[in-house]
Design a protein around this nucleic acid. Sequence first.
RNA 1: GGUCCCAUCGUCUAGCGGCCUAGGACGUCGGCCUCUCACGCCGAAAACACGGGUUCGAGUCCCGUUGGGAUCACCA
Length: 465
Amino acid sequence: MNKIITRFPPSPTGYLHVGGARTALFNWLYARHTKGRFILRIEDTDVQRSTQASVDAIFEALKWLDIDWDEGPYFQTQRFPIYQEYIQKLLDSGHAYYCSCTPEEVDAMRKKAMETGGKPKYDGTCREKKLSKGENTVVRFKAPLMGTTVLEDVIKGNIVFQNSELDDFVIQRSDGVPTYNFVVVIDDIAMGVNTVIRGDDHVNNTPRQIQLYKALGAQLPVFGHVPMVLGNDRTRLSKRHGATSVTAYRDMGFLPDAFINYLVRLGWSHGDQEFFTREDLIEKFNLENIGRSAGVFDLEKLLALNADHIKAAPPAKIVPHLLPFLKEKGYEAEAGPYLEGVIKTLNARSKTLKEMADGAEFYFQENLIYDENAVKKFLTPAVLEPLSQLIAELEAIETFSEKALEAAFAKVLESAGLKFSKIAQPVRVALTGKTVSPGIFEIIEVLGKEQVLSRLKNALGFING
RNA sequence: GGUCCCAUCGUCUAGCGGCCUAGGACGUCGGCCUCUCACGCCGAAAACACGGGUUCGAGUCCCGUUGGGAUCACCA
């Protein structure tokens, strides 16, 4: 069995969007699963719209997703000599010809065909003229007029196209730059790509490409067209539906592993399994279980999956992803046991890293910020006595183990004749400034004796003052 | 409009002729747990688009209808 070689060929005309990320993922996963090779190729033949900023944005997104490549990145604009060679080959073998029709003329013939109820396509004016290269000539592929072209798609099955539906498409523009349908085939042949997984918006291009392979006498790759990702109104996902940029999801606080889990699961399944680690995906991903119908992007489910990944990941793995959110808030957090302890108290309560950073604020505030209403409601004279006692008890404890803490609380509650629920909120407000937080004992353990005592004493001041 | 694709709960899906009184997940609604908020646990409502065939038997195969999507460039 030959080694599987896949590729991801984004065009740098914008950031990496959700749909693109998914096809990148499918190709990458399939290559990793089969121990094959994954190639990154930048399709920048649209010189007008391609930008370096887009190239950088795509790299950045791929890096966040942790998708790596074995070969490339190749840039098509640096491969013109190769394309030129193949164009000449096609010209020489009679599979291509020069055409001097102007864009305006072609437009006109399309419009005319449309009016008379025909198919809008190039009418072959120059097909047999045997023109030679001229000032404004393009090179067109001489497509078969009759017969059929069959696309054997691994996920959609066989699709038959009538060749009469296709026209002689341009393979080299008048400025000498080759077009997409041509370079994609040449590169895939030259790079040995034998498995092409892409969005099904490319299905209608495929018969032209197949004809090119045939004209060149090259072997066809395995094609697999994956269904589109739709917005909640069932139209192609766009900005209207919310964020479409991959890095926007990073900035919202998603874990890359959760994001890829969601993206892959949207259109692929492995029985009833919903949660997949990256390793799981590599081990189990295949082409057979990719669905045929388009799927709607559902932020709620992504959120739920993100929460699951946050819960399941060891705190140390969360650290590098959380740090930027803490820094953004202005806190001097750093990797280490303290941060990991913080994460442990928050991972069951956070759907995103942003939420986690919000919930972690009190751990990092030099001067705790108190919620006014919380103070008014819970730091009342009634708790002055028990709180003072608690301070005394805690001061006597050497190390803050959960057991010792519980004993200290029990002692205070008993002598004051109070239930834990009576003192929990006051203590919570004293320690965090808020009425919502992780469990009291968890917080105390992480904060440590010094901080806990100082915050408790500070709270006493509120009651007295 | 031409061509092509698709069709199971609101959403993602399992199902590859009998195991389906159609399963799981998210979401929704109840309840339990509980120091707040969560987590967790238990339970409920919720789908085979429609019509014809084929077959002893169809969510599963075929045809049609309807609905949705994609694509028709010297863009990729």
